[in-house]
Design a protein around this nucleic acid. Structure first.
Lengths: 200, 200, 200, 200
DNA sequence: GATGAATGAGCATTCATTCAT
DNA sequence: AATGAATGAATGCTCATTCAT
C-alpha cells in the first residue's frame, strides 16, 4: 500500500470514528454529514468519497467489533456447537451494548424499514449477521456436530430473531433491560433445548 | 350524543379508516397528512381537530382491534392464567398481522426511537400493551392464580419482549416468518415453563 | 370570489411580479426561490402553494402579455388572415422584447431541452404559442379565408420556427439584432408569399 | 511528433470520442466528467490536461465535421458565391443532424445563455460559425463577386440566424422537422433573393 | 367544527475543479 | 502526462403544523 492509499485509509478511519462518537452521543437522525466531516477534520464532500449515502457509514461502524467474533470462533474450533453459539450470542450482545443504544436503534430501523434506504440489503448489518450465523451452523453440519437435515435457515432465523428481539427490548426498556443477563438466560435455558434435537 | 357530535365522530372515523388503508398500502413515512384528509374527504386542517400530531393517528388505528382482546379475556374469567396469556399472545399476533406490516413497522419505530416523537409515551401502542398485560398478571395474583411474589414487571417485559421480537422478525422476514406459528410455539413451549414457577 | 380567495390571488400576483423583475435583471438560474419570496414578502414555502416547481412560474410570467394578443385578434375579426398573422407576429415579438432577454432565454431553454424539466409540456410557453397559432389558422379555414386543405400543422411550425429562430438570434446577438425590424421584414416579404398559395 | 506527443494526442482523441458518444446518448447535463474519463479509460484528472472546463470538449467534438466544410469550399473556388453559400448551409445542417440532437442542444445553449459558461466566446461553436461565414463573404467581396458595400456583418447574421433558428426548431420538433428539407427550401427560395441585390 | 393559505426549518448530495504525487 | 483524493459551494423542496376566517 503506497502513501496515498494509506492517507485515504486514514481518512476513512477518521470518518468512521467521528461518526461512531457522534451517533452514540446524539443519534443518527440528529447529526448530519457535516457534523461528521467537521469532527473528522475533512471537507463535507470527502464523506462521499468513501460512502455512497449517509446511512452507509453505519455498517462500517459495526464491522470491526463484530468481525472480531468470527476470529474468536475460529479459535474455538474444537469446541462443541452449543458452546460456539453461546459464545456468539453473548459476544454479539456485548458488541451491541458497547456500540450504544443509538447505533442499535439504527440497526433495527434498517431491519424493520426496508424503504428507509432503498435496495441496500448489502449495506445492512442484519444481513451480515444472518450470513455469519448461517456459516457457523453450516460448518457444524459439515463437522457432523449437527445432523445433516438440520433446518439451518430456520435455526438462523430463530436465533437472529431472539437477538433482534432483545435489541428491540433493550431500546424500549429505558435501562431496565439487561441485555447480557437476557442473552445468558436465553443461551442457558433455551438454546440447548432448541439444538438438542439436531445435535448428533 | 347530538347531531354535531355524531358528525364529529364520523369525521374522525373517516380519517382513521383513510389512514389505515393508506399506511397499509404505502407506509407511514410515504403518506402525508394531506393524503389522509383528501382520502377522507375533509380539509387538511381538520386532521388537527382530532389528532395533535400526525403520529397520533397510528395509536387510534390499533385501538379497536386490540381492545377487543380485553373483551374476550373478560369472558375467560374462570379459565387459568396460562390459557388467558396464551389467548392474549395469539390474538395479539393475529391483530398485528391483520393490521399489516407497514403499521407494524410504525409501532416498532415508536418503541425503538423515543426521539422520533418527543414525549408521547401515552400515544404509543407498546405502552398500552404493557399496561394491558400487567393488568392481566395483577389480576391473576389477586385471584391467587399466581404467587404473591410473582415479579410482574419482569414477566410483562419477558412477554412483551417476545412479542415485539416476533414483530421485528416478521418485518424483516420478507414473508418467510409466520407470526402465528411462532407465537403458538412460544405459548406451547416456553410460556408454560416461564409461568410454572409462579403458579400456585 | 371571497376574501380569502382574493388574498390568495394577490399573493400569487406578488410572486409573479417579483419573479419577473428578478429574472429580467439577473436571469433565471442566478436567482433562487428564496429571492423571489423575499421580494414578494412571503415565506419560502408559499411559493410552492402556487407553483409546483421553480420553473413553472416562468409560464405564468408570460401569460398576461401574450393573452392580450388573443384579445386584440378578436377585435380584428373582419380583417383578412394575412393581417391577423402579421399582427400576431409583430405583437409576439414586442411581448418577447418587453419581457427581456433573460426570460426569453428561459423560454428557448424549455424548447430545446425537454429534460430540463421533466414532462411538463403543458407548462411551457412554446406549447401555448403553437396552440394559439393553430387556432388562428383553423379559424381562417373555417371562415373560408384559407383553403380547406391548408396544411395547418406545417404552417404553424413554419411561423413558430421563424419566431423562435428570431428569439434565438436576439439572445445571441448582443443587441445588434432588432427583433421588431426582423419580424416586420419577415411579415412583409415572406409571410404573404407563404400564405398566397392557400388563400382563397 | 514524438512518442509522448502521439500518446497525448491519442488520449485526447479517446476523450473526445467517449464524450461524443455519451452526450449523443444522454445529453450534456446528464453525464459528468468522470463518465467521460471512465469510458475513455483514463483518470478523472486527465480530462483537465486537455480541457480547461467540462464545456470545452463540446467545441472539439464539432471541430472535425465542420472543418471539413471549409476544405470542401476551397475546392469550389471557381464557383459562384450563391453555390458556395448553398453548399455551406446544406453541409452545415448535415453535420448538425449527424452530431445528434443532444449535442445540437448544447450548441444552442451556448448561444442563448452567455452566463452558462463565463467568458468563453472562444470556446463556443457559434462564434466559429460566424467567423467562417464572414470569411466566405469577405472572400466573395475580394473576388468581386459581391459589391464592395455588401453589409457582411448583417448577411452573416441573417444566415447564421436562419441556421440556428432551424436548429432550434429541430430540437423542439420531436422529429417532425426535417432539417435538410428546410435548409434546401431556404437556400432555393430566400438565399438567392437575399443575395441578389449585392451580387455584381 | 371546518377550512386551507401560510409558514419555514432543515439537509443530503453532486460534481467540476484543483493539485500534490 | 497521468493520477485520484480532496474540496466545498450551492439550493430546491417537502410537509407537519398553525391560525385567522
Amino acid at each position: 500500500m503506497n502513501k496515498r492509499q494509506l492517507a485515504a485509509q486514514n481518512t476513512k478511519r477518521k470518518l468512521i470514528t467521528a461518526a461512531l462518537e457522534l451517533i452514540k452521543e446524539n443519534g443518527f437522525d440528529i447529526i448530519n454529514v457535516e457534523d461528521i466531516t467537521r469532527k473528522a477534520g475533512v471537507a463535507k464532500g470527502t464523506f462521499y468519497t468513501y460512502f455512497k449515502r449517509k446511512e452507509d457509514i453505519v455498517l462500517d461502524i459495526s464491522r470491526v467489533p463484530f468481525s472480531e467474533i468470527v476470529d474468536e470462533l475460529l479459535l474455538m474450533e474444537s469446541m462443541e456447537i452449543t458452546k460456539k453459539l453461546t459464545h456468539y450470542c453473548k459476544r454479539f450482545m456485548e458488541c451491541v451494548e458497547s456500540c450504544g443504544i443509538n447505533i442499535c436503534r439504527q440497526w433495527i430501523r434498517d431491519v424493520i424499514d426496508p424503504n428507509h434506504v432503498p435496495n441496500n440489503k448489502d449495506s445492512q448489518k442484519w444481513n451480515f449477521d444472518v450470513e455469519m450465523l448461517k456459516t457457523i451452523l453450516e460448518n457444524a453440519v459439515m463437522d457432523k456436530e449437527l445432523k445433516p437435515d438440520t433446518p439451518i435457515e430456520l435455526l438462523t432465523h430463530v436465533i437472529i430473531c431472539e437477538l433482534y428481539g432483545m435489541m428491540t427490548c433493550w431500546c424500549m426498556s429505558d435501562g431496565t433491560f439487561e441485555p447480557l443477563d437476557w442473552v445468558e438466560r436465553f443461551c442457558d435455558v433455551q438454546l440447548e433445548k432448541i439444538l438438542e434435537q439436531f445435535t448428533v
